[in-house]
Design a protein around this nucleic acid. Structure first.
Lengths: 232, 232
DNA sequence: CTAGAAAATTAGGTAAGCTTAACTTCGGTA
DNA sequence: TACCGAAGTTAAGCTTACCTAATTTTCTAG
């Protein structure tokens, strides 16, 4: 394996591409531009350079794909990011809505040695504070199949496993509702009109809250009842 | 106080200038170029830009000085650096010869919030693993007057307080001799020819080691006997 | 008080990474 | 099938931060 010497910007593009694919979305110029908050021409230019390095596969006007080498780089950065998030939460008391932006900056600058020391202190963890999986040292990923909160049937109880969103405001809000990874929720209903989901939060007689459908689709759960997902 | 938005490169120049002054050296273009491992024209260019921002005082061909604003920025970075060094050593088990390069990269990327959390975990420390003073939150510096190991009189006992050097190789070597901050040494002699200093390391009957004069001048001590410094 | 070396600066150039403006290509619908 | 809008690309240009080569300034020693 050749030692890659990539800039933070390059790492960001690779990570961005990886995260799009992780969410099941196509890697397009526009999607990357939005994810990285740059303009489309910037993406075209960087994609060309990364393709030249063998990290990205791209024919003009077609979809972008990460090569295995590019995926490896992205996983390394994602590992840094999620280890840092967990470390900052666990050992430095940062809230789950604060850790993302800090990790976003530090992820490009920690050495392999520090990465390993952090992983060791955390006991080689598999999940970060948002429930996102942490790639292992060999860059393999723990796999779980989760169900979107918005896709549960009424009456089904589930444990929140992952919240796929990084906006501090939204995360903070979900925190105030108690809707964090590990929390137990029961699906109540979908509003007949509009896109609103109502859930009960807590194991026994918990509080009932309504959240927007787009938010509920970012909350991934492990259902505890048998009949689980609503049809379609 | 206006929010400064400086690049890591700019911060490095300001820190470099500050550290030269801390060592009592003149801030020249050449000295900065060597400290930052860039060429003199790079320094001239950056100095011009930092002068434009009011962080540096400079008339062409004259010595460079930091303004109070520039000093404040430098102290902030030095605080980050030394807090990180201590944190990495204390909480992540890194050796004193490894922490410097890690801190050098991270110092530009930690938030004020993280800085404060780290300082808190460490108990608002005043000294880093090399014995270098850590600027306080208000950027004031704890002052100690120390004596170079190379300037002690024969027979004087002293505690090593600070080692002003960052080369991992040298630091590691001094570590193997037990010559680290906190260690007690007794000055034995200066070799009659050449520039070699001999000391006994340890409180009771310690091992005797000889080190180069340039190294001994980087080791700063708090003498415990009364008659302390050699004349001249 | 002047020559020459050392230090600093200017001139000119490169690369990364971004921008806006102008264009091409693609794909779906009339 | 031809067109039109959206997506992508090319073109031109900016800033940061570096470089080498050439020039200028300063200081010191004779």
């Amino acid at each position: 394996m050749i030692r890659k010497d990539l800039t933070p910007a390059m790492e960001d593009y690779l990570k961005g591409a990886y995260l799009l694919r992780e969410r099941g979305e196509d890697i397009t110029v526009l999607a990357l531009a939005e994810a990285l908050k740059v303009t489309p021409p910037s993406v075209t230019g960087m994609v060309k350079r990364l393709a030249g390095l063998g990290l990205i596969e791209h024919t003009p006007y077609r979809l972008i794909e990460l090569t295995p080498a590019g995926t490896a780089v992205a996983l390394e950065i994602v590992r840094h990011h999620r280890l840092l998030e967990l470390y900052l939460a666990e050992f430095l008391g940062m809230a789950w809505d604060e850790v993302h932006s800090e990790a976003d900056r530090l992820e490009h600058h920690i050495s392999e040695d520090l990465e390993e020391r952090i992983a060791e202190r955390l006991g080689q963890p598999a999940i970060d504070p948002h429930g996102d999986p942490i790639p292992a040292r060999d860059l393999t990923l723990p796999e779980r199949d989760l169900v979107r909160l918005s896709a549960l049937r009424p009456g089904v109880q589930a444990t929140i496993a992952r919240v796929s969103n990084q906006e501090p405001g939204l995360l903070h809000y979900l925190g105030t509702l108690g809707m964090v990874p590990g929390a137990v929720v029961t699906f109540v209903e979908v509003a007949p009109y509009g896109n609103v989901v109502t859930v009960k939060v807590g194991a026994g007689k918990g509080a009932v809250h309504s959240i927007a459908g787009e938010v509920a689709s970012r909350v991934l759960t492990m259902p505890t009842s048998d009949e689980v997902a609503a049809p379609h």
